[in-house]
């Protein structure tokens, strides 16, 4: 029997998450390099988009199915994955490091006697072994690790691993989960109305104490909306109650890796930088030329947010409508 890599897939509203497809791409690549077979497992009530999984290189799709699995159940999903992995002798499990993956992977690992490396930003085969790199101390340092147990679990940071098209044909197997463990289950999802989350956004516009008061945050929101971006915040303005904690970027907020991060009136304290320094491009607008944010910005304007933000918004609208 060939060895197996399992990519665990996450759906929201019947759609497969982009981060899961990144995980599929990586699993397919590793499978090829190691000569392992790859399987995608979808704990779900129904799977609508199996062809997407096949598009990124995994044709064998296993639906771990139960009608209760339309919502996430930490206990139910974990048990279903563990049983499937045991029965089939799965050796490597990949999850994406999302709210669900972070919650689920560490429940699964001990039940398989597996060690786990979380939030990896690189996973490569070196001398026949899987070697991962994970940021520690909020990105202030990097750790290169390998997992020494027979079964190995990795969670991959979203937005870091590329999607690689590698089409194959989809073949969905149904494994029905007859007596799911529903001792811990989601009963309801409360969405923050229509808002894009900083953890998933490709562009983020963040505001800090330089905005002076919460009433001025519309400047940040309008620029964000012109860019199709999520709104982020420094801890100073979250603590002041101007913005919800879900928007806080930094060591005790969210770690983000968008392609573009625009920091407006943010000084760039070490705890803030920790959460956003690995963004691909960083723009800083701050009236203090010595603000630490400029040490990591690609482009900066040393000026007044009240003067610059409205002009920037108009200019963006102009060029993106062309």
């Amino acid at each position: 029997m060939s060895k197996l890599i399992l990519a665990v897939i996450e759906q929201r509203d019947g759609k497969i998450k982009k981060s899961s497809l990144e995980t599929v791409s990586k699993a397919a690549e590793l499978g090829q390099k190691l000569g392992y077979e790859t399987i995608a497992a979808v704990p779900a009530a129904s799977v609508e988009e199996s062809e997407k999984i096949a598009q990124y290189g995994i044709g064998r799709i296993v639906k771990l199915s139960n009608s209760a699995f339309s919502n996430y159940s930490p206990s139910g999903y974990a048990k279903a994955i563990v049983e499937f992995a045991k029965e089939n002798g799965v050796e490597v499990l990949l999850f994406s490091n999302t709210a669900m993956g972070k919650d689920l992977a560490p429940r699964v690992a001990p039940l398989l006697g597996a060690g786990i490396a979380s939030d990896c930003i690189s996973l490569e085969v070196q001398a026949g072994e899987l070697v991962a790199i994970r940021p520690v101390f909020a990105g202030k340092a990097l750790q290169k690790v390998k997992v020494n147990s027979a079964v190995k679990v990795f969670t991959l940071r979203p937005n870091v691993f590329p999607l690689v098209e590698n089409s194959t044909s989809a073949n969905v197997e149904n494994v029905s989960i007859d007596s799911p463990d529903l001792s811990t289950s989601v009963t309801e999802i409360k969405r923050s109305a229509g808002k894009l989350d900083v953890a998933e956004a490709d562009i983020i516009v963040s505001g800090g104490r330089g905005l002076k008061e919460s009433g001025n945050f519309h400047l940040v929101e309008e620029l964000a909306s012109a860019l199709g971006a999520a709104v982020g915040a420094s801890r100073a303005v979250v603590d002041a109650g101007w913005r919800p904690h879900g928007e806080q970027v930094g060591q005790t907020g969210k770690t983000v890796t968008p392609s573009l991060y625009v920091a407006c009136g943010i000084s760039g304290a070490i705890q803030h930088l920790a959460g956003m320094a690995s963004s691909k491009y960083i723009v800083a607008i701050n009236k203090d030329k010595d603000a630490p944010i400029f040490t990591i910005a690609d482009y900066g304007i040393v000026g007044d947010v009240f003067e610059i933000l409205p002009v920037l918004k108009d200019e963006i609208k102009k060029v993106t409508s062309n």
Binding site: G115, A141, I296
Partner: peptide, 21 residues
């Protein structure tokens, strides 16, 4: 179960450009 092979500091970023005031 997890072995640390190496710890390192991320490569420092090249200085950015100030475009104006």
């Amino acid at each position: 179960l997890v072995e640390v092979l190496e710890m390192s500091l991320p490569a420092p970023k090249a200085p950015g450009r100030i475009l104006g005031t």
